[in-house]
Design a protein around this nucleic acid. Sequence first.
RNA 1: GCGAGAGUGGCGGAAUUGGCAGACGCACUGGACUUAGGAUCCAGCCCCUUAAAAUGGGGUGGGGGUUCAAGUCCCCCCUCUCGCACCA
Length: 829
Amino acid sequence: MEERYIPQDIEKKWQKYWHEKKLFEVTEDPTKKKYYLLEMFPYPSGKIHMGHVRNYSIGDVVARYKKMRGYNVLHPMGWDAFGMPAENAAIQNKTHPAKWTFGNIDYMKKQLKRMGFSYNWNREIASCHPGYYKWNQWFFLKMYDMGLAYRKKSSVNWCESCKTVLANEQVEAGLCWRCGTEVTQKELEQWFLKITQYAEELLKGCDDLADGWPEKVLTMQRNWIGKSYGAEVDFPVVDSDGVIRVYTTRQDTLYGATFMSLAPEHPLSKELSEGTPQEKEVLNFIAEVSKEDKIIRSAEDTEKKGVFTGRYAINPMTNQKIPIWVANFVLMEYGTGAVMAVPAHDQRDLDFARKYDVPVKVVIHPYEKALDEETMTEAFVEEGYLVNSGQFDGMNSVEALDKIGEYLEEKGIGKRTVNYRIRDWGVSRQRYWGTPIPIIYCDECGIVPVPYEQLPVILPVDIEFEVDGRSPLPEIESFLFTDCPICKRRAKRETDTLDTFVCSSWYFDRYTCPRYDESPLDEKAVNYWMPVNQYIGGIEHAILHLLYSRFFTMVLHDMGLLHVGEPYENLLTQGMVIKDGAKMAKSKGNVVDPNDIIEQYGADTTRLFILFASPPERDLDWSDQGVDGAFRFLNRVWRMVFGNLEKIKDISPYDDKIPIPDHLKNLRRKTHQTIKKVTDDIEERFHFNTAISAVMELVNTIYQIKTDDVKDPLSISVLREAIETVVLLLSPMVPHLSEELWEALGGSDSIITVPWPSYNEKVIQEDEIVIVIQINGKLRSRINVDASSSEEEIKETALNTPRIKELLKGNEIKKVISVPRKLINIVTG
RNA sequence: GCGAGAGUGGCGGAAUUGGCAGACGCACUGGACUUAGGAUCCAGCCCCUUAAAAUGGGGUGGGGGUUCAAGUCCCCCCUCUCGCACCA
């Protein structure tokens, strides 16, 4: 036997080789089919964790496989390098965020290289580099020019721990997505990107992505966009010229509106109650509600409260006076901030009506039961027919949606409309470590964008960090003060920075031309490579990053910078790595450090275990013993190659020219079946676990071959083909070991340059097949028949099998079902 | 509450189109080799019946159904995971 398998030595050797040969560097080549494979770029938090290893191992298999299939594969890596943790670390360790970040990048890059991932490293980008964030600023200005970036004062989500504003997408169950602190509301002037303008396009795009994206992600995005069809209706206010406009999706219930609810923030809430006996009560209520946290206030189980304004509106359908209330559950941000309340057909309104003793009026009647207005406690929300609804009485309620909508338009009372739940994306962050927003405020000229030729607005790095966590930017005079580009007078810079999600919204475009300096994107490069053919990452970005980057792609498309309208053709969301039933987390003490595993077993074993333990979209249960098993298998492969090396070294693989010796037909068939299985598993399903198990079976088959059976050159060539196939099929998953074995087998070039093996459909066919014989669906026997046997012959043989004959004695055969090449089912009476 | 996904041996998982349930691996048991074994090789390993077994019976969360045939399709229920959740 040859030397032992020592992964660490081999892996170093081949990593060096790949680097020196520049094997993973690519350029646009119109003669080759391109394939852009991308994994979500990491935040340089310190070191790689198992989730990264899983994400990138999956991606690397696909990248290497596609390369062997002849594609021009772009497989880049970079760093999502702006963000809070750098600032926290800076305060804690008395260092600078940049130093901390670049230190982490250096270390993590070494770790990724140690894993042997096939990245095109000379396309590396770090979003905190001015050469990158310059273009964030450029896009921001373009969007400002296009009216897509605007500034407004509004109530925004505030995280006290991060001391910054958060986008709606970054608030999870009322908590900050990053630190878990409870989010409160603040009134602030902020910059927004008009993602709402693309709501319809983002929604429509979901349908086109249905083939390549997980249904779950699309559903989440659709829900987030939240399109609803309804109507806006004007309710005249009694003793006033004004109207209150409401949004409803249930215009069929208009006749049942017995009161109206305004959001406390609605300007009319205060205005209407002025001078009424209820004025004080209303003002108190508004003050009380505004003190409450909005997240808690808008939770479903919060008590519904309200006050009467002392004023009335007219239901435009019934011309009846209905009281106007202010209610805590009405949201100013959704619809018009005013709701027509139909207690009989909306649970919230019913609860509210019962509590404050407002009348309930049934206008939709169920087809199969009766409702009692006086006593009902459950609102009827299903389909029914209209009652108490004037000319619409008797009409089906679904039909009435349209008919009443038409009526509203005819009468000029209202109009049918669509409404979206999605809000504009607030991108201002009161943080230091981010892209400076390229805006100047001038007392004379107002809001003035920084001229394009002055980009980038450099983030000053020569600063001290205070312990209280506030951004130091507003205190740096050399940054803060500048000349107004228009009037040249002293003016102030914006000191907020852009949300880091801006960086990740277009980084995949930049990989195609990372050093291009004339504009953000080199048209030729970006349109050669885009879209990303396969994107791989965690499900936690289902809404945030995946929605923002779709939005950016559409905007860039409209700017004329991109041909594509969607960034990612296919999306794979990989599951979490868990251990002992819980996600790996420091707090749970169940973290496995990839470094330890690599040190002990090598990168190949780490990769193999991760790929073998579970299909990618499912959670992966970490098992130390499983890693042992993966290592054992690689040793087995090693011994298989070196144990046969002397014999097979100078022999070419079997080439079909001379008939195959009978005793090796099975081996050859298994070899080709395995090629097919592994190819299909990688190509169509990303099921690497079953691909690996298939290779294991082939290895087992090779081990079962008796030495005496492979003595002549022809037999040896069949063995050579089998062994070579194992090495080739494993190479995307365990690249270092495969390179070493390939070299031993006489390969002169990197295994990644070798074409992926192909299989011969004829060889896969069995000569003899097993037919299962069932009686009444129960397995009773198996027979071997010649593969060429006809259905009739098989039936005949089956019925004449002694055991079957015995079992059938005295039973009448009603029919015989035959499934070609699989089974015979005999049905008796 | 709504939406999505899942539930298969001691464990991870396989069964791709309705056609032999448990591939492959881990753990475990026995044996061989051996100075040694946490190396390697061979064998066994869903449950029941059994001295042992079978081409005996049962079995894919539970109940019902469709079918010659169901882990797979349909209906009802249970459990778990994830997402959304006063959106008018």
